[in-house]
Design a protein around this nucleic acid. Structure first.
Length: 628
DNA sequence: AAGAATGAAAT
DNA sequence: ATTTCATTCTT
């Protein structure tokens, strides 16, 4: 055991793991051992014994039931969920958390280091010592199948049994889990590993064991030990003592430390859309801090930086929240061990940085487009215009367009505190992509998938119609379509905010009150994106608008209609081009876009589909909780 | 902070 | 075989 402590952790098929990794927790463990463990030790022992007894019997159960019974589909006994006094809100966190990991992509070293996480921030004196190497968030261990399952069903159960204590809920879900078919369980298991692995390829589980084992303190050098409190386990160096005044310290001395959260105030959205601020529109209303859409031509410039933004990690936040509510006060001080410390450290703000820099270097926005006739050299007024327009428009990365659309037509927002609360908040999911067949295929699949869940009542919507004939299409035609959709938009909103009622108006009133929180979901096989693209190409540009301006103008007309809560974009790729490092399924919370990649000509990857289904349902669950 | 469920992964 | 810790949230 000692030996294994001293040696670097067994290196997985993965890249460099810092040799000192194993020791990170030692100093803190020391702290904790002294302060608490000793005291509670015996209690713990008891508890453990109890549990291990239970465990064995449980194990037997499992053995007898799950191994022996092949099990038929038990969908019925899943009984009728329904009611839901209040919507669980934690779910959002889990999604965010998922997103957090998505990032430096392939930077394995980061990941492995992160496993150990934790800065040297701590109690009292110790807290003044900061090591230059940085923080890193703690990577949570993978949720196992059951935990995922529990998480997923929790709110349905809470709904059924209002006010039930959590442990009870655990029991219930435990039962349900046992009843689940082996196949179903496997799906959850797969999901459990897949997700975590994707996010933290180099994760290695390193539980701290209090059992006594290593209170023998050896420091990394293998030398003996009184623990040096100021020794930074991560970089192996001594942490530096920070000046008393925070001001003095910041500038010069701590290059690797994130600056105090300057960015904390900005919402990511604000930051990621620097050039979307209107310098151009004079309408007084715009003086409000409403971030308006920019001049159209910016879309091109946006592209570059947006791209970064889009593929860069979203706000590191996630479940820290969960721990943050813990009091920062004294009570915390002495009990500090790494479990807490690690979360107290701020997420590396550096992650945000890349989103801003070029805003400064951006060309000034063109103002008063209408007037700037001469400026637009981009528009060839030739015959093949529409082709080049199409090419141009299609060359804009879809995430950019989706994001822009997201600004024009945000999802239905929750009613303000003053307005009456809505009874239910479903979701609108747009499925976009150039491969229409695939779009429909996925739409159907998703509908079926959600329908199985009983928590959802999915409907396929009819997408905006394309131009009738191949001939020229006029603005009028388009305006007609838009008008139609203003109507449909209202219908959709109504649909997703109206509790589903299958039983006729019988005991309806009673039912509606406590139960029936099935979420209505509208799935649109193509929506605003496709429509905007199509119409951009077939409505000729008669004026000085550039193709991208043209696109945005077209897109802007959707304003006033409801935007999708989530867009699923099907990215069909050529098998011979391969995928590169791209993931099959990739959720970008920031733009509310989930990308699903699919090889042209073949079917969707089964795992990818499951993943989509799962993520979508989590997304929908989290909708209530999202801040605008 | 304990606790209720289950399970994966490290000792 | 045993221990930790993933999730959730009330007592």
């Amino acid at each position: 055991m000692l030996a294994s402590r001293i040696l670097p952790p067994p290196v997985r098929p993965s890249p460099p793991t810092p040799p000192i990794a194993t020791f990170f927790s030692i100093p803190r463990r020391y702290v904790k051992l002294n302060t608490k463990v000793g005291a509670s030790q015996s209690n713990m022992e008891n508890a453990k014994q109890t549990r291990s007894l239970q465990k064995t019997s449980r194990a037997n159960d499992a053995l007898s039931s799950s191994t022996s019974s092949p099990v038929g589909t038990k969908e019925e006994q899943l009984n009728s969920f329904t009611p839901c006094p209040r919507i669980t809100r934690k779910r959002a966190a889990s999604i965010e958390e998922e997103m957090n990991g998505r990032e430096p992509q392939g930077n394995s070293p980061v990941d492995s280091r992160a496993v150990q996480g934790a800065s040297s921030t701590g109690s009292g004196e110790l807290s003044r010592h900061v090591c230059l190497c940085h923080p890193e968030l703690k990577i949570p261990r993978p949720r196992n199948a059951f935990i995922l399952y529990r998480q997923h069903h929790q709110h349905a159960i809470v709904a059924r049994n209002p006010g039930l204590a959590n442990p009870e809920i655990s029991k219930i879900i435990g039962e349900q889990w046992k009843a689940e078919s082996e196949a179903q369980k496997k799906i959850w298991r797969d999901l459990a590993v897949a997700r975590h692995q994707e996010q933290y390829p180099d994760y290695r589980y390193q539980p701290r064991r209090f059992g006594r084992t290593s209170s023998t303190t050896l420091n990394p050098a293998g030398q003996h030990t009184t623990i040096d409190k100021f020794w930074c386990p991560k970089c192996g160096g001594r942490s530096i003592k920070t000046p008393t005044s925070p001001y003095l310290s910041s500038t010069a001395s701590t290059p690797t430390l994130p600056p105090p959260n300057i960015s904390e105030n900005h919402t990511p959205t604000t930051k990621y859309l620097p050039m979307m601020n209107s310098l151009s529109l004079e309408s007084p209303a715009h003086h409000r801090r409403i971030p308006s859409l920019s001049s159209l031509n910016h879309i091109q410039t946006v592209t570059a930086s947006q791209d970064q933004a889009i593929y860069s990690p979203p706000t590191p936040d996630g479940k820290r929240r969960r721990y943050n509510h813990a009091p920062t006060s004294n009570s915390h001080r002495d009990g500090e061990y790494y479990g807490h410390i690690r979360r107290d450290s701020l997420p590396p703000i550096a992650l945000f940085r890349q989103s801003t820099p070029n805003s400064a270097t951006m060309p000034p926005p063109r103002t008063a487009r209408r007037a700037s006739v001469g400026l637009n050299v981009l528009v060839p007024n030739t015959d093949d215009q529409s082709r080049s327009v199409e090419a141009m428009v299609m060359s804009v990365p879809f995430p950019v367009k989706i994001k822009v659309l997201g600004r024009i037509t945000p999802p239905l927002k929750d009613p303000g505190p003053t307005s009456p609360a809505i009874q239910v908040r479903g979701a609108i999911i747009a499925i976009e992509g150039e491969d229409t067949i695939a779009v429909y295929e996925l739409s159907e699949w998703l509908k079926d998938f959600l329908a199985k869940d009983k928590e959802y009542s999915p409907r396929l919507g009819e997408p905006p119609k394309g131009p009738e004939d191949k001939g020229e299409v006029t603005f009028e035609d388009y305006l007609g379509l838009i008008k139609e959709w203003h109507g449909k938009s209202k219908d959709m909103v109504k649909y997703i905010t109206t509790p589903i009622s299958e039983s006729d108006d019988e005991g309806q009133k009673q039912k509606n009150k406590s139960e029936n929180h099935i979420k209505p979901v509208v799935i649109l096989p193509t929506y605003q994106l496709r429509a905007s693209d199509v119409y951009t190409s077939c409505i000729p540009i008669q004026d000085a608008y550039s193709p991208t301006d043209h696109w945005q103008w077209i897109a802007t007309l959707w304003r006033g209609t409801v935007g999708p809560d989530l867009t699923i974009y099907i990215h069909s790729y050529d098998p011979k081009d391969g995928l590169g490092t791209a993931k099959l399924v990739d959720l970008n919370e920031e733009v509310r876009c989930m990308t699903v990649r699919k090889e042209k000509g073949s079917k969707f990857d089964a795992g990818a589909l499951r993943r989509v289904g799962f993520e979508v349902s989590e997304w929908i669950q989290g909708i209530g909780e999202k801040s605008a």
